Amino acid sequence: MKTQDPSRSTPRLPAAERRQATLGAAAEVFAQHGYYGATTDRIAREAGISQAYVVRMFGSKEQLFLAVMGQSLELILDGFRKALAAPDGEGSTMDRLGAAYVMLAEQRGVHLPLMHAFAMGSDPVIGPAARGGFLQLLKFLLEEAELSPAEADDFIARGMLINTLMGLRMEMAADPAGSQLADRVLKGSRSAGPETAR
């Protein structure tokens, strides 16, 4: 984690670039600490800016979290669309989507913030946004990727298993059963994708 002192001089970035950099820092902090463990101060330190500037840009931690959710969804859908549109794409639709999913899983700030959001279904603000995002992904799989409902269910279930193992850092488990599961799913998924790594 970055430990930049916000008081030190840093190169001035255009507002759009600073906002994007702050979103990236926030995604990492939310991925690591969850919504409740993250603070705007911790995010500001990660981004190398002041807490007041974070609040000025986004208004509140809640609004920042919603912006991170939106960015994660955009990155996933963009990665899926590129994988399907690639002229030299090999394998089935499931294979190509799986490879794109796993590539994004290498960045902790993409899938894990969404997992934290999905666990907050009862929150009056984050819950509806998380449900909307999940449905957006489901509709993409059914309508744009043209997967069958059973294929979409399997793809999502496999992706959630990958996310859960990443969030738990299961490869660090002392019990061989846990570390072996992580080995089978995570290492196998890096070469095969969520659906085909069985």
Rank of each mutant, 00 (worst) to 15 (best):
M1C: 02
M1R: 05
K2F: 04
K2W: 00
Q4D: 04
P6R: 01
S7K: 07
S9I: 09
P11R: 14
P11Y: 07
L13T: 09
A15L: 10
A15R: 12
E17C: 00
A21I: 00
A21H: 10
T22R: 01
L23I: 01
L23Y: 01
L23S: 00
L23G: 00
G24P: 01
G24M: 02
A25C: 04
E28N: 07
V29S: 02
F30G: 02
F30D: 05
F30M: 03
A31Q: 02
Q32N: 05
H33K: 13
Y36W: 05
A38K: 03
I43P: 03
I43N: 02
A44L: 07
A44R: 03
R45K: 11
E46G: 02
G48V: 11
I49H: 03
I49P: 03
Q51R: 15
Q51P: 01
A52M: 11
V55H: 10
F58E: 11
G59K: 08
S60C: 10
K61R: 15
Q63D: 15
F65E: 11
L66R: 15
L66G: 11
A67C: 09
M69S: 12
M69V: 05
G70N: 15
L73M: 13
E74C: 07
L77K: 02
L77C: 04
L77N: 04
D78A: 14
D78N: 13
D78Q: 14
G79V: 04
F80C: 07
F80V: 01
A83L: 12
A83C: 11
L84V: 10
A85P: 01
E90W: 06
G91D: 11
S92E: 14
M94E: 15
L97S: 09
A99Q: 15
A100M: 10
V102Y: 12
M103A: 15
E106P: 00
Q107S: 12
R108Q: 15
V110E: 00
V110G: 04
L112E: 01
P113K: 02
M115F: 06
M115Q: 14
A117K: 03
A117T: 03
A117Y: 03
A119P: 00
M120I: 01
M120Y: 00
M120C: 02
G121R: 12
S122D: 14
S122K: 10
P124N: 00
P124A: 01
G132H: 04
G133V: 06
F134N: 04
L135M: 14
K139G: 06
F140I: 10
F140H: 07
F140T: 08
F140V: 09
L141I: 07
E144Y: 05
E144L: 06
P149R: 04
P149D: 10
A150K: 12
E151A: 13
E151D: 14
D153Y: 13
D153W: 13
I156C: 05
I156R: 03
R158N: 11
M160P: 00
L161W: 06
T164Y: 09
L165H: 02
M166N: 14
M166A: 07
G167A: 14
L168C: 06
R169P: 00
R169W: 01
M170I: 01
A173R: 03
D175V: 05
P176F: 09
P176M: 06
G178V: 01
G178L: 04
Q180T: 12
Q180I: 08
A182G: 03
A182P: 00
R184W: 09
R184Q: 08
L186V: 10
K187D: 13
K187A: 12
K187L: 14
A192N: 13
P194K: 11
R198P: 05
R198V: 12
